[in-house]
Design a protein around this nucleic acid. Sequence first.
DNA 1: ACGCATATCTCATATTTTGAGAGACTGTCT
DNA 2: AGACAGTCTCTCAAAATATGAGATATGCGT
Lengths: 270, 270
Amino acid sequence: MRDASPQGIYKVQALDRAFAVLDLLGESDTPLGLAQVASSLQLHKSTAHRFLMVLERHHMVERTSSGKFRLGLRLFDFGNRAIEQYDLRERAQPHLRRLVAETEETAHLCILEQARVIYIDKIEPARSVRMITRIGSSNPVHCTSVGKAILAFLPEDRIEEVIRRTRFERFTHRTIANAEALRAEIEKTHRRGYAVDDEELEEGLRCIAVPLLDAQRQPVAAVSVSGPSFRVTAQKLPSIANHLLHCVRGIAHDMGYTSSSRGSRAAWTA
Amino acid sequence: MRDASPQGIYKVQALDRAFAVLDLLGESDTPLGLAQVASSLQLHKSTAHRFLMVLERHHMVERTSSGKFRLGLRLFDFGNRAIEQYDLRERAQPHLRRLVAETEETAHLCILEQARVIYIDKIEPARSVRMITRIGSSNPVHCTSVGKAILAFLPEDRIEEVIRRTRFERFTHRTIANAEALRAEIEKTHRRGYAVDDEELEEGLRCIAVPLLDAQRQPVAAVSVSGPSFRVTAQKLPSIANHLLHCVRGIAHDMGYTSSSRGSRAAWTA
DNA sequence: ACGCATATCTCATATTTTGAGAGACTGTCT
DNA sequence: AGACAGTCTCTCAAAATATGAGATATGCGT
């Protein structure tokens, strides 16, 4: 739905429908009955039923005791396999834990997928206000520190590509509203070495992020620290940034991104 | 494949095939090319190609730079949504962290799905031998402490149902080999209050688990501590069990399983 | 006990998927 | 260089597949 493939489009109706069902169940925070699924998706009862039965056989959905449907645990399995192939998450976790211990605020690990950032992991300090982010969910780049952190270290053409695909949705009155402003912010971020989201996604929430660069000095992810603005004050930013830099340095090391400063393959892009 | 549905079977070939593709990619720890997928699944090139294109459009698979396919991040999103509906995981995490800090061994959180236990979460101590468990993966009940812990507190008929569906696969020479032995072990576990897996799944690995009981005193999950046998010694078991009990008590409290000792609805099952 | 709403199931129809094969690449060997 | 061996893309007629109208069954509320 999101992207109209440039070339000829391949269709398998059954798959589109099945994923629509999963989507629907994933969106809904309460299990849905057959009838609800069928009508929401404009499928006929029998069709919806057949799909749900097949999905259930594969444990992609499961039924509550009341006979309603919700997402199944097979998806959880698949999801973990999917993320494992990146294996960034596992290696990063100890470093994130330390970061949280040091800053006592929530840490996030994100990667850039298409033109959005996906939350790969989240670590919360012992006692804190629960953050609403769900691991696996995504946000646009223009309103997140992680998005800006990654963007700022991407090559020019990739930056422009991402910007072009960004809709500049507004979340608060501080949300960056256009490509121009974003470019300026990116520029600033690059110079400073860390990115800041000053209540641009959510009122009262301030985040700060730094990118994780691979051996070719390309950003593959970003780590952020987020907390209420009254705790994450402007004065603290440099100190937090230091913790962040230390953290990503550790991750980079564990990932084998030997920053043996034989860099400068930077110009090469693709 | 795993379960022959009792009643009439519903089929949607396309879905079975699509999931077979995802399965294949999930099993493989290296991305696969079109040809490999096609031949592994006995699909014709064009068919496999079409499926992969559609799956890619849905971000269920993605292509590496070399054009090979691997699982996509949409699955990660779905997986997290699926697990969120249980929300046990999030609430349990702080307690598991404490448990790991106390015992300095790996902690697992599992639930029973059908006749197997699924790993919902894993917390590892700062420095330890990496355990091979993948979150989201599953194991049979007969060779895991978590399996036995849950089983031991299930009503008789559920126990028998699970046992009936267990294949008693052998993993080490200590693996419980038949229903009889498992029943005895269950009995023992119930009396003792905690379950032990003494190198029954893996040579040199000892685990100990206790169940998490809901308001109706039904087991909904189990928490375990696992470590090398030379560290997790027989002498330490009672002490670890205490930490475990403390941990699940905390989780139960957070989940609102007010154990207001107005229990004894135990006889009621369904 | 009745009726409404929901789920389950069957089967002939035609829509949708299928797969053979031809084309377009890519890189590898001689 | 040239040609081979391996990929991946794409088209289209054939047919097997999924479809959905509707009939049946189940269950819930009053």
